[in-house]
């Protein structure tokens, strides 16, 4: 579904990504793990078109999307939940969801998706008229994921969904991620520092170090890998 080929991304003259190549197949949950500053968010921002890579190709369903405007990329079916959630603080919960469906015109489909989300997260229904900024961290993460789902994406990019959340809430969020993958057939690209959790839900994983992909394998093999255990799992 998505393929990055030899992608180099720069911030000004500073290179952040070196020759990134990876592939995500339809229906998979793929994770990208790595330390702080390895370039995980940069990878997602390169896919979403917020930062345009200097070299390489980003193929979405065979079409090169590198250099396309962010709104075109959303229209094609890629939505991102950015790091730090980025809830519109003064918009109500319901309006935040409306913004997720900004490019859609099918009123009926939007209402169906809204109902599905309220079923998935009843707390959001309860709080639908409150400003998004008033929600707790966990609720904001639920809202951020829901807002991305309102675009009915084929590929969902998740950046550090566990950040700043209590372990119990994190587990709940990861359960929902699996559920979305199964029920909505949404392909998921999950970027995480919490490698342990991410590898438990993912099919395959990539390891990013200082802007380079250093390892890739099936998730259970990465979990069992002693180097990975030492570096990322704290075992």
């Amino acid at each position: 579904m998505l393929e990055l080929r030899h992608v180099d991304t720069y911030y000004g003259n500073i290179q952040a990504l070196y020759d990134i190549s990876l592939e995500i197949k339809t229906g998979e949950i793929i994770t990208l793990i790595g330390a702080n500053g390895a370039g995980k968010s940069t990878t997602l921002m390169s896919i979403s078109g917020i930062i345009v890579p200097r070299r390489g190709k980003i193929l979405f369903k065979g079409q090169d999307i590198l250099g396309m405007a962010p709104n075109t990329i959303v229209q094609l079916g890629i939505s991102q939940v950015p790091e730090g959630r980025h809830i519109f603080p003064a918009l109500s919960v319901a309006e935040n969801l409306d913004m997720g469906a900004f490019l859609r015109r099918d009123k009926k489909g939007i209402e169906e998706d809204r109902a599905y989300i309220y079923e998935l997260f009843p707390i959001l229904k309860q709080r639908r008229n409150q400003p998004g900024g008033n929600l707790s961290g966990g609720e904001q993460q639920m809202l951020a994921i829901s807002r991305a789902l309102m675009a009915r994406p084929q590929l969902l990019l998740l950046d550090e969904p566990s950040m700043g959340l209590a372990p119990l809430v994190t587990r709940q969020i990861f359960e929902i991620i699996k559920k979305i993958n199964k029920e909505q057939h949404t392909t998921i690209f999950l970027v995480e520092q919490n490698a342990n959790l991410a590898l438990q839900v993912a099919d395959r994983g990539y390891v990013l170090e200082n802007g380079r992909i250093t390892m890739q394998d099936k998730a259970e093999l990465l979990l069992a890998n002693t180097d990975i255990q030492r570096a990322y799992l704290g075992i």
Partner: peptide, 23 residues
């Protein structure tokens, strides 16, 4: 209106406005 919501969203968080597809 849709435009009004897009304006408010853009003023609150421009990066996120890009990410939900606002031009």
């Amino acid at each position: 209106t849709r435009t009004g919501k897009a304006m408010r969203a853009t003023s609150q968080d421009r990066t996120m406005a890009f990410l939900v597809g606002v031009n």
